[in-house]
Amino acid sequence: MSTESPQARAATGVLSARSLCVGYAGQALLPPIDLDLGAGRVTAILGRNGAGKSTLVKTLLGTLKPISGTIRRLKTPLKIALMPQTRELDFQLPITVREFASWGSLSGRGCLCRPWSTRGEGALVDRVLGELGLGELGGRFLRELSEGQQQRVLFARVLATQADLALLDEPTAAMDAVFQAEVMARLGQMARERSMAVVVVTHALGALGGAVDDIALLDADAGKVVVGPRDEVLRSETFARRFGSLLPPPPEVSAPHSSAQEEARHG
């Protein structure tokens, strides 16, 4: 899905899916998907409600078995971070912003034997909270914040993970336009600076700013999946049919991309 040569892609690849069929109880939600997630790139998984976005993410994470196809982790060990939707948070939990963000520094089985965070981890958490304008809120309970602030805390936790692959489920849904743009820009910066593969699940067209490199457009109703560079997908027939004129026309693409990027397996 990236525009790099296969060799370059293989060198920087983080996760690769081939003929991946996702769904529940043997029922495929979407046609088979080929997906390459590369280091330093931001991929948006775009689709309307019920299009199978979260199912695809769960399958990529390994928490849901694929119906068919393969998923290869091209880097081992592969550190993964997940930013769930705020509605998945338990607001009875009396946890402070700082403690919640510090969970980002836990990974693997080894963290079972680490009752305290190191000074470096603490400093990293403070830094990311500060960068996202949450420094003053570190001692506050997560449940007391607005939904937009909670999303920023979730994002801070992802930044604290130092993962190779970050999966973000609707990361900007409750943010105002300013923070949406800021978070998306920060995502692109994070991906490039840390050579991290970032996957953003969204149905918000506003999230598809310049930070997004590639798009996987899921259209469960039409049984189609379009995977490719951002501009190419935005110019595709499937995108036009699903989202019409909701987005201003994308900039001109300098070189036409292979038509093989568009996959129409069903119907």
Partner: peptide, 9 residues
């Protein structure tokens, strides 16, 4: 879900 993604058992 997040802890599983981060490799916790």
């Amino acid at each position: 879900s997040a802890s599983r993604a981060q490799g916790l058992p």
